[in-house]
Design a protein around this nucleic acid. Structure first.
Lengths: 158, 158
DNA sequence: CTGATATCATTTGCATACGAATGAATTTGA
DNA sequence: TCAAATTCATTCGTATGCAAATGATATCAG
């Protein structure tokens, strides 16, 4: 065999490794974390191509407020899986654009209530059909059956 | 039916919506993008619990350099799915910690060559077994068969 | 050969994302 | 009741992630 400086022991080791499925060889591109990151990147890119003036987290905040109505900033963060520091930035930017408004909770003075403005409501109603398109395009490489399986397994991981 | 202020037309509309699979109701938590984001978050959290002093992108850079050896910063970015601006930051931080070293390409003066230092090589060799554990823990909610299916479909999406 | 193009790297600006620390307000428990 | 613990929001620091602009270098086409 053409390998330089390889002893009989090395050949034996290589055989054992081959039997073990090449386990000493680490392939980044096969790791679930790496593929998950790329799949997420692709989705964000598709999102941006359809909804250029809003990010996925901003859309999530609007969609959740549209779904449940006024809530506290912290509670909203829990519902859309963002920590307190992150959700604050998202809400600040939506507020600056007039899509949400904030007010103080009358009873619990710690809480900051967040709600859609009429402009925010109009925006999310206009964007939800685009979001359905984005979901379709993201799942386009899969058949309908594969997509259903994928979503079921993905949900178990998330 | 106890719904207030609902006319006969409203009931008909509701029936039609039910037949259409409730398509006027948008559920953020069922959208592939949202679940993908949460699955990715969970993986990063698992990663951090096992490898606290390195981020997944930093690990990816080291693992790829370990796999292919010296390469240009740009090419490395392509291989680990990072744009030029992002990979620069990652390499800068790895360089500051002495895990990689950079040099100028002798022929093509535009290129910045990146390679592992001995410390970087030692680090990645030490971390790869932990990365296998991270992958296992990330996939733990799935059976072996489900995990195989999931990885196959995820790869089609990424 | 040289002007147009393309590639590589850097920089800036903006937007997540999260740990940690802080302060204000509320709830709990002895 | 009142001190301890908890919750809510904010701030700071660090690290991706990407678009856009820029400068240096290399390649291509006429």
């Amino acid at each position: 065999m053409g390998w330089p400086q390889m002893s009989g022991e090395d050949n034996l080791l290589r055989l054992v490794e081959a039997e073990d499925g090449d386990e000493n060889n680490y392939h980044l591109q096969d790791q679930v974390g790496f593929i998950l990151r790329r799949a997420h990147q692709r989705h964000v890119s598709i999102f941006a191509s359809h909804i250029g003036d809003l990010t996925p987290p901003q859309f999530a905040a609007l969609a959740k407020l549209y779904d449940i109505g006024e809530t506290s900033q912290n509670q909203l963060g829990t519902l859309i899986a963002m920590d307190a520091a992150t959700v604050k930035g998202v809400i600040d930017r939506l507020k600056a654009r007039g899509l949400v408004e904030v007010s103080k909770h009358e009873v619990d003075k710690r809480r900051l209530l967040v709600n859609l403005t009429p402009e925010g409501r109009e925006a999310i109603e206009r964007l939800i059909p685009l979001a359905r398109t984005i979901t379709e395009e993201t799942l386009a490489p899969l058949t309908a059956k594969e997509a259903a399986t994928f979503l079921r397994l993905l949900a178990k991981l998330a």
